[in-house]
């Protein structure tokens, strides 16, 4: 056995590299074993579209947006993609709750050069990575089904990145306030109506005017608008607002998370 400790040599610590990447690396190592989840990520959107959206569309007919009539699946498909980018990021971020309250993984990280701020950044990055994997799978299916009608569609994956980042930041910030599993029910009470009302299944025009602005304040609405515009090719300057809204949500969320995790871990 060689000497296991050399008490004069210093460990090199490359400060230039973002330490958050190391957390991404650790999570990827764990995730390798759960490839099943990723595989189901490919099938689920197919499931939803064939078992739900297409039959429903058959029943509903088309959706009129402005002066254009869209096939129902072409209306809902991009929205479901946005919702899946959101869910992929947000629910992965909520896994951090377990690690923060019950697991010891972060305690171990903090006895290395990794800081609480790196944890917030790293977990956000990871949530975005996972969300992007789902989005890419979903996008493939939309392409195969011919539901992407414009060359703007090339920007859909980068747009999913923005959505994922926005909800990852918000998600990690949210879990730092959660005390127990019952609090997840409250999260559900926010996420479910957002999913159903943010023009996923029906256009903004069904709402009375007073409610319209309320819906337009929902972050998922901006995600859906963004993807829907890119998929249909009906792109306008409003899409920059969408990107700004989501990007800002991600940055603010990550900042809050960073500060809160600092307080939770360093006592």
């Amino acid at each position: 056995m060689s000497e296991v400790a050399a008490h004069t040599r210093l460990t090199p610590w490359p400060r230039s590299r973002p330490a958050g990447l190391l957390i991404v690396e650790r999570n990827a190592m764990v995730y390798r074993r759960s490839w099943m989840i990723l595989l189901s990520g490919f099938f689920e959107p197919l499931f939803y579209l064939t078992f739900f959206v297409y039959p429903l569309g058959d029943f509903i007919g088309g959706v009129t947006l402005g002066d254009e009539t869209l096939e129902y699946a072409a209306f809902v498909g991009p929205a479901l993609l946005a919702a899946s980018a959101m869910n992929g990021a947000f629910y992965d971020a909520t896994n951090v709750f377990w690690k923060l309250r019950y697991g010891k993984v972060y305690d171990a990280m903090l006895s290395t050069p990794i800081s609480p701020g790196d944890v917030a950044v790293g977990e956000t990055m990871w949530a975005v990575v996972r969300s992007l994997l789902y989005s890419a799978a979903f996008l493939n299916i939309l392409l195969v089904l011919g539901l992407i009608e414009s060359w703007w569609g090339l920007l859909i994956l980068p747009a999913c990145f923005v959505i994922g980042f926005g909800f990852a930041g918000a998600g990690i910030a949210a879990v730092t306030w959660m005390r127990n599993w019952q609090d997840f029910d409250l999260v559900q009470l926010v996420m479910l109506p957002m999913f159903l009302f943010a023009t996923t299944f029906f256009p903004l025009s069904v709402y009375p005017e007073a409610i319209e602005w309320l819906v337009q304040a929902l972050p998922l609405y901006h995600g859906i608008e963004l993807i829907r515009a890119l998929a249909t090719g009906d792109v306008s300057a409003f899409q920059l607002v969408n990107v700004a809204y989501l990007g800002l949500m991600g940055i603010v969320g990550m900042k809050i998370a960073s500060r809160r995790i600092d307080g939770l871990l360093l006592k």
Binding site: W13, D107, L110, S111, T112, P113
Partner: peptide, 17 residues
């Protein structure tokens, strides 16, 4: 950061992954 890079820590409760 610099200090922790040079320490080894065995906590009271195992914090294994």
């Amino acid at each position: 950061v610099e200090i922790r890079a040079r320490l080894g820590v065995v906590p009271q409760e195992d914090s294994l992954d």
